[in-house]
């Protein structure tokens, strides 16, 4: 009798005793609490996430592709989308370059203050966006600490697209650094030694042996930083100037449309932005899967 039960439990083939193993959603386990916790998780997710998002999708779908397209091509919306995407791309790209340097330096070199700087990299994660926003605005305002010398050089940052760029660089940096740091840390020493025994100079070793394996991580970091930059609000609106058609970002336009009770317009822009975010997420997963298959690592 107990054998029968055991075989059911371990799934040992149907037909051994004529007992068919019932399909169960989860593999049998002695640990309790699955139904309770899983059920709670599903309910919570449905209420907090799925339901509201599906409302958004439903509203968007009632606009249809035609409606979405019309919204996207409204001059002001188009300008905001262009502003948001182009500056987010630029900021993420700049973050890749400097983020790589920062990650390299923090992982491979020893110098006083390294631990402190390593902790500081997380600041954009920890600092509330509004605080970052007013600080950056204050810093780059024409009479600000950086704004004043820049103004003397004829460069205006605050209330221009340049301000948006600065804010998005701030916001995206940790994504690059934190994504690429562990990969740098795992670079085998033997790779560098092998390269040296084969006659390569240090520069060749860095360029041809050490940096290429970092490419997938850099791409992932880029996609993460880009996705975050596209949606960023609080850090940007204080420094941006928010002049329609010039320095207005898409998230702000959503807020503006909400204030005008143009739910459709707001929904349209939000849908487009969501689509881009998911695209970025998908790209990340694809990059990682490809990299794992090809190179055996992420």
């Amino acid at each position: 009798m107990s054998d029968q039960v055991n075989m059911e439990r371990t799934g040992a083939g149907a037909g051994t005793l004529g007992v068919k193993k019932p399909w169960s959603f989860t593999a049998p386990s002695v640990l309790p609490g699955f139904s309770l916790t899983f059920g709670y998780t599903l309910v919570y997710l449905s209420l907090i996430v799925l339901f509201p998002l599906s409302v958004l999708v439903w509203r968007a779908s009632s606009l249809g592709f035609g409606g979405l397209y019309a919204i996207a091509t409204e001059p002001r919306v188009a300008a905001a989308l262009r502003t948001t995407f182009s500056i987010s791309l630029a900021a993420a790209a700049i973050d890749v370059v400097f983020g790589l340097i920062v990650a390299w330096v923090l992982t491979r070199y020893e110098f006083p203050g390294r631990r402190f700087l390593d902790a500081v990299v997380d600041l954009p994660f920890a600092l509330p966006t509004a605080v970052a926003g007013i600080s950056l605005a204050s810093l780059y305002a024409p009479n600000g600490l950086f704004g004043a010398p820049l103004a003397a050089l004829g460069v205006k940052v605050a209330f221009t697209r340049g301000g948006i760029l600065v804010a998005l660089i701030f916001v995206g940096l940790p994504f690059i650094v934190r994504t690429v740091q562990p990969i740098i840390g795992e670079l085998e020493v033997e790779l560098e030694e092998a390269s040296a025994t084969l006659g390569a100079t240090r520069a060749q070793t860095v360029w041809r042996v050490l940096l290429p394996p970092l490419a997938p991580a850099l791409l992932t970091g880029f996609a993460l930083a880009f996705a975050r930059a596209v949606g960023e609000y609080g850090s940007v609106i204080f420094i941006a100037g928010n002049i329609a058609y010039v320095s207005e970002i898409a998230p702000l336009l959503i807020v503006v449309k909400l204030e005008q009770y143009d739910y459709a317009g707001a929904t349209g822009i939000a849908t487009i932005m969501l689509a881009i975010s998911f695209g970025a997420l998908l790209a990340i997963n694809l990059i990682q899967a490809w990299s794992r298959r090809r190179f055996g690592h992420v």
């Binding site: 085998e188 033997e190 790779l191 030694e193 092998a194 006659g199 042996v209 394996p213 055996g296």
Partner: peptide, 18 residues
């Protein structure tokens, strides 16, 4: 190392995975 022209085979191969 570069100048010595020795062929070195590492324990864990140290192949360039990319």
């Amino acid at each position: 190392v570069q100048e010595r022209r020795v062929g070195f085979v590492f324990q864990n191969y140290a192949l360039f995975k990319h």
